Simulated assay, not measured.
Amino acid sequence: MTVPIFVLALVLASALSVYGQFGGGHNEHHHLEEYIDYKAPPHYHWDYAVHDLKHHDIKSQHETRDHDQTKGVYTLLQPDGRKRIVEYVAGKHGVDYKVRYEGHSEHGGIGSYSG
């Protein structure tokens, strides 16, 4: 049984590649490892927004965290036409929410209750 020459070349190239990765070759590559400090205090900021008039999907959110305290606010356009605004602060002792509304409820608006 004869083995095609390209198969033998492929096996030889693979073996040399593996041999070189583990320090056997002359061209050793030193990879830098990323250092992650898992004990560092958390700190982040993010936000997003959606403004889709076709599907009446209008909302946004903003949040920041510094050490043990997380603060944020999110808004959304409710089916009755009012804008709901929720502000929150979370920490060691729980979460505090403050909810308020802007605008007036529109009778017959998208998803409104008509009873």
Rank of each mutant, 00 (worst) to 15 (best):
L12C: 14
L8F: 05
Y44K: 10
V18F: 15
Q61P: 00
P42W: 11
V73L: 04
D68Y: 09
A15W: 01
M1S: 14
E34T: 14
Q21D: 15
K98G: 05
D52A: 04
R82L: 04
Y19D: 10
G91E: 05
H29K: 06
A40M: 07
D52L: 02
G103A: 03
D52G: 03
H104C: 02
V11Q: 13
A49N: 05
D68C: 13
G94Y: 02
F6C: 13
S17V: 15
K83W: 01
K39W: 01
D68V: 13
Y48A: 12
G91K: 08
Y38C: 08
Y113L: 09
H55R: 14
H43G: 02
P42E: 13
D52P: 00
Y44D: 05
L76Q: 04
E28D: 04
K92E: 10
V99D: 02
G81L: 06
A40N: 07
L32R: 12
R84G: 02
H29Q: 04
N27A: 09
Y38A: 12
Y44L: 08
K39M: 06
H43I: 00
S105E: 05
V86H: 05
Y19K: 11
V11P: 00
E28G: 02
G108T: 03
H104A: 01
F22P: 07
H30K: 15
P41T: 10
Q78T: 15
Q69E: 15
E63F: 04
A90Q: 02
V89I: 13
K98C: 01
A49L: 06
I36Y: 07
D80L: 04
V11E: 11
L12E: 08
D57H: 10
D80G: 00
R84E: 10
S112N: 06
V50H: 02
V86D: 10
V18Q: 14
Y113W: 08
H56G: 12
G109V: 00
I85R: 09
S14V: 15
Y97R: 01
Q69H: 12
